[in-house]
Amino acid sequence: MTPLRLTAFGAALTLAALTGTGAAHADAPTAAPAAAVSASTVPGFSDGYGLTLVPGSTEVHSPTDFTITVTTKQLSGKHRIRILLPAGYDTDPGRRWPVTYFLHGGGGNVNDVAAAPALHSDSMITVVPDGGLKGWYANWLMQNTAEGAANWETFHLTQVVPFIDANLRTRVGRAHRAVVGLSMGGYGSLHYAQARPDLFGHVAALSGGIDFGKPEIRAAVLATELNLTGAWCAASSSSSSSGSGQCAGYGPYVDSDAIFGSPYPVFGADRVWKAVDPAAPANLAKLSGTGITLYTGNNDLIDVHTEVASKTVKSRLDQLGIPSRLVNYGNGASLAPSCDGGHNYGCWAPAFADYIPRLEAAFTAAG
């Protein structure tokens, strides 16, 4: 192990110690078991865009809430996509709908959406693709780790999005498509909106790791690679088998350079980190014409860093003349009684309840 790797390990350990093993995360409602509803009550899907459906794997929670499972050469194993339809989807067959993609946080999965009821809207389709326990919405630099193939960005942007458009009655075009996420998914949402401004006209990042210039955020990524639980887990309805809301882990240990390469600014070693940094002015400039919303608290050892990151992004957007909205709810008192200003669904659920009506209005205004 090189001295740099030892330093990376130490940095990740430090962050894990600061955040504790899930201690910073409040419990969220446990996911309801799938209802006894036949798969024939939900829309049929066909293979395409590199995705192959796993036969007999559809989980039907209700006629407007179901999960399909797919395989792809871009990722090892099977991966779920949870889909929430508006109530009128079946009864109004001539109508097409805008789509919001929800990106879950580290240590979470597609069932986390159950903890944010506002995301199940009667004005849009919500799609929740698997993002991996530590996928970081990236095409990993290393493809030969214990995780195997890990091209998450390709999976989401060039496979899932067109697959959904081909199988559901969606409204295509960036004005009718949003990407939102929290924690690790907050990074993913802002990065995806920058990588593909042609796809997404609206973006929201909640308590996101959105400034790779911050050593603490780079250390959080390292902690997930090394499976040091407690570092930015997304406490959710499914983060542990007990439903306690505590993060169960990030999967197998992988090399500390596996996702974005070396995090150290030595002779350009951190070039990938810089290239995908959502807070980099060159990347923020790509969001011109995009509806941008940021939410953060500042009342625990995680959101104290997301607050700084969100303020940095907001300031740089202002300097670029790009409109954006930052909701800094501090200790949570201004947001909701359930919110303590920390890194949890007690804050994220009401944040989405604030955001979704605004997004619905933007979709309606787009015609």
Rank of each mutant, 00 (worst) to 15 (best):
S338D: 10
N298T: 14
P278F: 05
P337F: 07
G342S: 08
K314G: 02
G342A: 10
W348N: 04
A275W: 12
L317V: 00
T296P: 02
G261L: 12
N299C: 13
S315F: 15
G332A: 04
T296R: 01
H343M: 04
G251A: 05
K311P: 03
G245Y: 02
D354E: 14
D270F: 14
R271K: 14
Y253M: 09
Y250Q: 08
N344S: 07
R271W: 15
C247D: 00
H305V: 07
Y295C: 05
G251D: 07
L301I: 08
Y250A: 06
K311Q: 13
G243N: 03
S338E: 09
T306W: 10
Y329W: 14
S310D: 11
L301R: 13
C339D: 01
A269H: 13
V272F: 08
G268T: 08
A269Y: 04
L294Y: 07
P323W: 11
G297P: 02
D277I: 13
N299H: 11
Y253G: 00
C347V: 09
R316F: 12
C347L: 02
C247Q: 02
V276Y: 01
G249R: 07
D303C: 09
L317T: 00
N344A: 12
K314V: 02
A269Q: 13
D303I: 01
G342D: 06
G249E: 02
A279P: 10
H343Y: 13
A333P: 00
A280M: 05
T296S: 01
R316E: 09
D257A: 02
P350N: 07
R316Q: 15
Y295K: 00
S288M: 03
V327T: 10
A279F: 06
I302P: 00
S244A: 12
Y295P: 00
W348Y: 14
S338K: 12
S256R: 03
V313T: 02
A269D: 03
C339T: 01
F260R: 04
G291W: 12
P337A: 11
T293Q: 09
N298C: 04
D340L: 08
S310L: 07
H305I: 05
K274I: 06
K314W: 04
A282L: 02
S262G: 10
N331A: 14
L284M: 08
A282V: 13
R316S: 10
E307W: 08
N328A: 11
V304N: 05
P281A: 12
W348E: 03
K274S: 12
D257Y: 02
A282R: 09
G346N: 00
H305D: 07
Q319P: 05
